[in-house]
Design a protein around this nucleic acid. Sequence first.
DNA 1: CTGCTTTGCGCAAAGACTTGCGCAAAGCAC
DNA 2: GTGCTTTGCGCAAGTCTTTGCGCAAAGCAG
Lengths: 335, 335
Amino acid sequence: MVTMTEVARAAGVSVSTVSHVVNGTRLVATATRERVQHAMDMLGYQHQPTARSLSAGTNRTIGLAITVATNPYWVELIQGIDREATRAGLNLIIVDTRDDARHESVAVANLLAHRIEGLITAPADGWRELTLPMLRDHALPYVLVDRITPDLRVDQVGVENEAATIAIIDHLISLGHTRIGMLSGIPGLSTSTERVHGYHAAHQRAGLPVDPELILVGSSTTDGGRKATWELLQFDDRPTALFAANNSMAIGALAALSAAGVKVPADMALTAFDDFPWADLFSPGLTTVAQPSAAIGARAVQLLLRRMNDPDAPPQTVRLPAEIMHRQSCGCVSR
Amino acid sequence: MVTMTEVARAAGVSVSTVSHVVNGTRLVATATRERVQHAMDMLGYQHQPTARSLSAGTNRTIGLAITVATNPYWVELIQGIDREATRAGLNLIIVDTRDDARHESVAVANLLAHRIEGLITAPADGWRELTLPMLRDHALPYVLVDRITPDLRVDQVGVENEAATIAIIDHLISLGHTRIGMLSGIPGLSTSTERVHGYHAAHQRAGLPVDPELILVGSSTTDGGRKATWELLQFDDRPTALFAANNSMAIGALAALSAAGVKVPADMALTAFDDFPWADLFSPGLTTVAQPSAAIGARAVQLLLRRMNDPDAPPQTVRLPAEIMHRQSCGCVSR
DNA sequence: CTGCTTTGCGCAAAGACTTGCGCAAAGCAC
DNA sequence: GTGCTTTGCGCAAGTCTTTGCGCAAAGCAG
């Protein structure tokens, strides 16, 4: 492996000078700089940030701890983070948390061992007990994405769950629906509770009573969505519209409805949180709430950068607006 | 940050002893070892593999360079690699290649900077020119997954594309189909060509002629699949069955067929490569070729381990068998 | 008790890089 | 020409860990 020492010898300068041209940390005469550059090219010098991090304690690398899941929302989030990190000159390395607090903590320990200087994470349930203490021990700057913890003073980015839910429920109400079923996500996650809040708020605003029986837990899975939908279909006083709090449950709902021979949107209107690329390939096309995943990711990187530069900055919670993608399943017959 | 020096002082031993108890590299008297352990616990010592890699040149970390995509196949592959790496005591860090050779090379350079000791990658087109030379320069052990390059003597793992395709086409033929349309993937990738080979081989074996017009490029995307299907529907002598070479194209096909009012499987049988969780939620359920993604990932890790231990071992190409998931879309009315 | 082996541990160099300090040369005003 | 400021660069210490070498103590056979 070719080291700075060799480059220095080849260029006839000291290693400190080589270091300074590599990092641009102090002025180096143009002629000297070019000699060094040339020597590096000749020898094929490869910088070793890992050694730098030893002495300088910095390597421009941030970590992302997230669950690697098939959900397009996560994938776009990761892509958004990756792109923004690249733009900011940061290296990004990713580890899988498996959405499990125990595994999350070992994954983060792994990142820590690689001397990351900041962390972005979509915390699993149990994160506060297992992972957070490690981050504090290391005084590592971090920001939370997707899942917001309101009672914690930390930097975090998510979508406007409540407002978006209100908007879509509102839409259903304006179409004349008064009994709207809801399939809610994994209990305990902030995203789940916020969406339920939105459901209530929309009803209240419209002066409509909420029938608590219409809110079923679908646990964010396809199977959970299917079962919950099936239950709703058993009611004497069936809902006429359905809102699934994420895309997997929506797919489950779709399956249950078609199995039961319920026509969408004629017999039942259907809407969902989370857009996905083939949402309009179903017939009818699914009306969804599209999260700005990439923007959320980018914003997370920016927050992290800010925190890395100023550890004492006041913590910030950012909410990005979502967009309703009108298709056919809601029955409003647009396009 | 607490270093070995501090632990050593606290335990009243030298740093070398601390290092040896941490790594188990030489015999340390039980009493001493316990003192050191205790000191580490008290001080909350965190090992710094990055510093080790400086002097010892090893840190037990491997990298994964892969495209972070919504395709469930990739996701399961990543999960398989992650689990097997954990089992083997290896740390895994992931970077996104965006399935683009240029970006892939910077991502790999990033990994290299973190002193990984091995790499698993699903190479993008152009990999041989941009990334491979870097790997060779660094003498880095690596293994390829998913995409097999037959003319390169390297370690690689993939699925039996040809055999699996033969099996599924055979199934269609046995159901009486003689004109079978094929939607093929991104041209140039080994997976694509192998599946086309399988298509031909199955026909040959059955003594059936191949009509080249029936093989259309769908480029592995939903949209490509839809367009190609639409074209096939225009033929006077329409195919009676369809085989999509990946899941995205299958979804596109499904969309095109339903838009055209073609009933599956009555008017057109449909099968596809790549299973996905909600394949049986469509009606009819999609008959697919399921790849053992997790097993492929695990195997890749094993191959890498072997190569890391023995750089001169003969390169190995591993093919894992796929499984046909019979559902309704093929028209064979199983279950 | 002597001399040899084994067991247990410390010393110090090495590994690749950064950076505070300080020196020398050049530039400049007077 | 003199004295002061810039500009440009080298020296060497420091970062955390590993490991070859070698020393001391303990164990043991004779």
